[in-house]
Amino acid sequence: MSSTVIGSSILIDGEITGEEHLVVRGTVKGRIQVRDTLVIEDGGVVEATVDAATITVQGTLRGDVAASERAELRPSSTVIGDIRAPRILIADGASFKGNVDMGG
């Protein structure tokens, strides 16, 4: 119950901040900042600067990504932007264009 879900027909133009798990099935433009996990599901489109603990992408993400724990690009995902995370998973089939920074 304590998770935010942005449904497939929803368009948000602005800023989302939160403490909980965030699931995006629709479209979000602007900025996303969550303390927990961000999941961009299949069909979800995010054109935003993203800041989260864990980021899982199955849909489309355009923007710079900063994950404090982990970033995961699933097979169906398309990501254009820079990723900064200590651990990054890119699955076979994922499309990605940008820089990767794993710290160090």
Binding site: M1, S2, S3, T4, V5, I6, G7, S8, S9, I10, L11, I12, D13, G14, E15, I16, T17, G18, E19, E20, H21, L22, G26, G30, V34
Partner: peptide, 23 residues
């Protein structure tokens, strides 16, 4: 239900929200 959009208690959205499903 799973299909609808939910904004959880700790979540803050600033901006425009539009769509064709329950929120």
């Amino acid at each position: 239900d799973e299909a609808s959009t939910v904004v959880a208690p700790g979540t803050h959205i600033v901006g425009r929200l539009s769509g064709q499903e329950d929120v």
